[in-house]
Design a protein around this nucleic acid. Structure first.
Lengths: 150, 150
DNA sequence: CTTGATGCAAATGGTTTGCATGTTT
DNA sequence: AAACATGCAAACCATTTGCATCAAG
């Protein structure tokens, strides 16, 4: 239980906002804290949750994720394909997904800074720091393609 | 029939790549050329196609879009919500979608240039110029939110 | 005890697929 | 005629919803 303190902090935040603390919410947050990766798909998350608490239903995981997102603890990052993934707020980052091999690179939140500055300046549009996947080819797949058509 | 020449050019390209020219492909391309907007969702596209050629089935529209995308004539831009949208290659642009009101702003392809440069430099990742939706709040919705919690 | 969360099963929406038939080359 | 595209119906996957029951405050 490496992240007990972090979990308690999150639950405290939740409670302080008048939200209820339930088993499902506890387990989802714990799995996100314990995961090796900062982002997990709904599917992954459900598997992990289900392993630990088999009576928690898939629809509950969906509802819990929605709820925790609305409460501001989680953020959603749609990967443009397959199930949506979620991560804890504070682990802000973007993704670059290779359309060749499916690899996902995590990018620091600030890669987008030049773009968001321009959006505000030119359109008054306030970009959210979460939610972004850039598609393209990773170094390996790009090299492979260049071999084929040089 | 404002875009007859453009259509012929596209069909010629298709033929030159050994692909067949069918009614479905012709009508899909025509609708994309005639549309007021540069991007259309599968749903929109199906409606328009169906109005002109009622016997064209929805699954054919999907197959046609896939095919034309693989053939390099179209590009896909997943809007993270609802049906995927497509546009002609050459009309490259990105989208900023307001999570408040759903408005979609089109952004010139080059807004991402600073980011793609950095991706190549730091990860060797070659970003594709299509396929990108930045979420956030448009000027109006951002102002509204600031009124509530100033 | 009241309000809100959950399990379950069934519905939804977008997209894909298998197969027999029709069209393009 | 051969190769490929299409219509149709049925399957699929991620997600949502209605409702009766259950747990947190």
């Amino acid at each position: 239980m490496a992240h007990d303190d972090d979990l308690d902090a999150l639950l405290a935040t939740l409670r302080s906002r008048g939200e209820r603390v339930t088993t499902a919410r506890r387990v989802v947050l714990r799995e996100l804290l314990d995961a090796e990766s900062t982002h997990l798909t709904v599917e992954d998350l459900f598997d992990r949750v289900h392993r630990r608490e088999p009576e928690i239903h898939r629809s509950t995981v969906y509802r819990t994720l929605d709820h925790l997102t609305e409460a501001g603890l989680l953020a959603e990052s749609p990967l443009d394909e397959g199930p949506t993934s979620y991560h804890l707020v504070g682990d802000e980052h973007h993704h670059a997904r290779c359309t060749g091999c499916g690899a996902v690179i995590e990018l620091p939140a600030d890669v987008l800074a030049p773009v968001t500055r321009r959006l505000v300046r030119e359109h008054g549009f306030v970009a959210e720091p979460h939610h972004l996947t850039i598609t393209g080819l990773c170094a390996t797949c790009a090299a492979q393609r260049d071999e084929l058509s040089p």
